[in-house]
Design a protein around this nucleic acid. Structure first.
Lengths: 201, 201
DNA sequence: TATCGTCGAATTGTGGAACAATCTACCACG
DNA sequence: CGTGGTAGATTGTTCCACAATTCGACGATA
């Protein structure tokens, strides 16, 4: 429901209401909510329950600060170890096969798959876990903002470029390209946020 | 109890036993355990409850992989923004005032304070949250391993060096020094782990 | 005797009801 | 018009119950 966009940002999730609606006990709802809180999708204030996170421009910047920290280090580890990037390769290829009519969600998922493949290639359980958290939040951004997305072919080409730099084991170029790629994405989302604010204002 | 070392690594925390021992309800215990699971201090396996995390050499490496990702990016952000590092400065000074009789826990806490101060100086809520997780795990390492620790004066001197590089805005030197500092700490813990394994073997 | 299957106790996962503490909204009063 | 209070709603926690699952012991069989 949260990622469908069928819940307004900031909506308060009352325990009795949602537990009955979902057909589960209040305890179970609370436990489930705690998981989503850890992923950043919900917020809890004492005695006031949980509500759907509303993201502002600072949040987007912050999400990408963490994302950069993790991805840049991941690429460094991958380059140093000379890790095989078959999964990332696969994600790029599947991206290439999409045509311009591909659903927005499909594009987002494949984009994420590519980046996740690089993170997972490090073999670091904890970096992967931390990254899972930011990915949830990015998905939340996406769900709330529905930003402009480039045509699949363009994103695929960019990913291809990133991948080639990785495989060429050129650390400086990798870092530069990834920072730019992530910076662009961040800017893209920030613009979408600003656009929405102008509508609702 | 976990960080006191009064609980053996791997101990299974039965819900009824611990909830009565702590004077709380089972549900409350489960909620509390969930928080510690998120911090990495406990593990849950389905239908088998939670048990105290046991860390092996791979875990220590992995903890420091994530730690490096966060700290290196934090130092980069601090250098770029020219952020004031008053809190880190303070931590170094308080470190300097310790004599060799200082309790092990005091030394650990001040060490952590220094690193946390740099993380917090970025102003990134999410990087700080992620770092809080690794710090818990490091504290767990420390509690379980009680590794060798340098004399306070030496650690203070090393921190002073790190801080001066940060304030001199020399990114390459900062990165090199921090990677070495963290690498040493990681090695230190790994050795302590190996030493323990030889005892228990 | 060793291996395997089965049964039973213990433990977790979930549900439901209750109650105190806290928050919220509304209303009466100055 | 502002203030204070009161009643209802909501959260945080407790207790009890029970199905599902796991773990261990016991006994049957080769």
């Amino acid at each position: 429901m949260i990622l469908d966009g069928s819940l307004e940002p900031g909506t308060r999730l009352r325990e009795t209401e949602f537990s009955t609606r979902l057909g589960i006990a209040r305890h179970t709802f609370r436990a489930a909510a705690q998981i989503l809180i850890n992923e950043g999708l919900l917020r809890r204030s004492p005695n006031r329950g949980v509500q759907l996170t509303v993201l502002d421009a600072d949040d987007i910047l912050d999400i990408f600060r963490l994302r950069e920290a993790l991805e840049i280090e991941a690429t460094r580890l991958v380059v140093i170890a000379g890790t095989d990037l078959a999964d990332a390769e696969l994600a790029v290829e599947r991206f290439n096969e999409l045509d311009d009519t591909a659903s927005w969600r499909t594009v987002v998922d494949l984009d994420m798959d590519f980046h996740r493949a690089i993170i997972d290639a490090t073999g670091s359980e904890r970096i992967s876990r931390a990254y899972a958290g930011v990915q949830s939040e990015i998905l939340l951004c996406m769900a709330q903002l529905r930003p402009h997305y480039d045509r699949p072919a363009e994103v695929a080409a960019e990913h291809r470029e990133l991948l080639e730099a990785l495989q060429a084991s050129d650390p400086d170029r990798v870092e530069k390209l990834f920072r730019r790629h992530l910076g662009d994405a961040s800017e893209n989302l920030t613009n979408a946020l600003q656009a929405r604010e102008e509508v609702t204002a």
